[in-house]
Amino acid sequence: MNWSNTALTAANHEPVSVLVTAIGGAGYGEQILKALRLAGGYRIVGADSSRDCANFARVDHAVTLPKASDPNYVDALLDVAYAFGVDAVFSGCEPELKVVSDQRERLERAGFLAPLNPKSVIDTCMDKRATAQFLDAAGFPHPRSVELSSLDDLDRVDWFPVVVKPAVGGGGSVDCHIAQTPRELRYLAELLDLGNRSMLVQEYVGRPEDEYTVGVLHDLDGDFLNSIAVRRELGGALNAKLRVPNRTGRADLGEDLVISSGFSHGYIGPYPEVTGPCERLAAALGVKGAVNIQCRLVDGVVQVFEINPRLSGTTSLRAMVGYNEPDVLLRRHVLGETVSPRFAYRSARIHRSLVENFVPEEPALNWTWAELKSMFVFLASMTPAQCVL
C-alpha cells in the first residue's frame, strides 16, 4: 500500500505484540508507548524498573525488569519477550539501548525485531567526542568543541560563552551547564569533578528561538523514508533546563542563554532549511532506523550540537501529526508493508503540560521478571503427562 495519501494507522491487521521498556520517568520510552497507542491495533507489553510506574495502567501487560546495569538484564528482557510472545522490542532509555545494541545478536537469533541503528552509529552518537570528530570529517558545521580531562586543560578554551556537558552520554541535557567567563568555567570544572571524569566544552551558538530537534527516519535496510522538525519554544520552565541572562555583550545570542530540557514542544513541520542538511548528515552517518538531531539555525547555516541515535522525546508529538515512527518501522519490518518515502503529515503547533497520575495502592503491575522466571523453571520441571493434566 502507498502511504503517501493514507493515514498511518494499525487498526486493520491482527495485533502485533510489542515490548516497550523504560516507559516510566517521562523519557522516550513513554513517547514510544504514546505513539503506538495513537496508532492503535498493537498489543503492548510495558516494562520499567520501578513497580510504581504510572504508565503500567496504559499497557496490556506490565512487568518490571532489572536496571540496564544488572548483568541479568538481557536474560530478563529475553524471558519477558518469550513469555508474552512479542514481535518487536523497543528500548526506551539510553542505558538499555546501549546494552541491547551490544548484544543485539541474541535478540535477532531469538527472532525478535529490535529497531536499532547499527552499533557503529550508536557508539558514535552516544560519545560526544566521536560525534564531533564525525561532523568534522564529514564536513558538517557544528559548534567548536574541546574535551577536557583535567583542570590544566581549561586554558584550551579561549572562546565564550560555552556549554559544559558530559563527554559521553547525558541525553536530555543531563548535567549540562553554561559558562560565560573563564572563572565560571573553572567553577563548573571543579563542581563536575573534572579529573575523575572528562567533559566536553562546546561553543554556545545562535538564539533560543532558532533551535530545532530534527527527526530523520530510514528503514532498517538504510533506505530513506522521511524527515520532520520541531522548532522549539523555550519560554517555559518545563521546556528550558537552564536560562541565564546574557552577560557577554553579544546581541546575536539573544537576551538569555538557554539550554533546552528533554521536554520539547513547539511548531512541527517539514522545515526544509533544517531537515535537508540533516537528511544528508543521516545518510553520511549510515543511519538504519530513527535518528534525532539537535541543532540551531545560525545565519542560515544548520549548526549541529548533538545527535541521538534513537527515537525522540518528541515521538508522540510527531505521531499526532501523522509522522508515527514506531508504527512505520513495525509496518515496514513486521507486517511487510510498503511505506512510500516522504509520506504526508500535517504541520501544527503542539504544547505540552504536566499531567497528574493517580497511583493506586495496588499497582497495575502484572508480573515481575523474577515471577516469570520462577514460572519458567516450574514448567520446565513438569513431565509431559503433568502438562496434559
Rank of each mutant, 00 (worst) to 15 (best):
P71D: 11
V334S: 05
L151C: 05
L154C: 08
V244H: 03
V59W: 07
D221A: 15
M320P: 00
R231V: 03
C278Q: 04
V45N: 01
G262W: 06
K34P: 04
Q133P: 03
G92C: 07
L107Q: 05
T368N: 12
Y42C: 03
P161C: 01
V359M: 14
V355W: 10
S340R: 09
V162E: 11
R331V: 01
V388E: 13
D299H: 10
D123R: 15
H177M: 03
E94Y: 00
N2P: 12
R58D: 13
N12A: 13
Q103A: 12
A290Q: 10
G171L: 06
W159R: 12
F134G: 01
E14W: 07
R331A: 00
P270E: 12
L65T: 09
L33I: 08
A344E: 13
V334T: 05
F305V: 01
G27F: 08
Y345W: 14
V388F: 11
L97P: 00
V302T: 12
E147N: 10
P161N: 10
K119R: 15
L185V: 08
G249I: 02
P182M: 09
K98C: 06
S264P: 03
A380V: 09
A189N: 08
P95E: 01
D79I: 12
V359S: 10
I44K: 02
N357I: 08
Y187I: 12
D210E: 15
L65S: 01
S145L: 06
R144G: 14
R106N: 07
T315F: 04
A344G: 11
S17G: 13
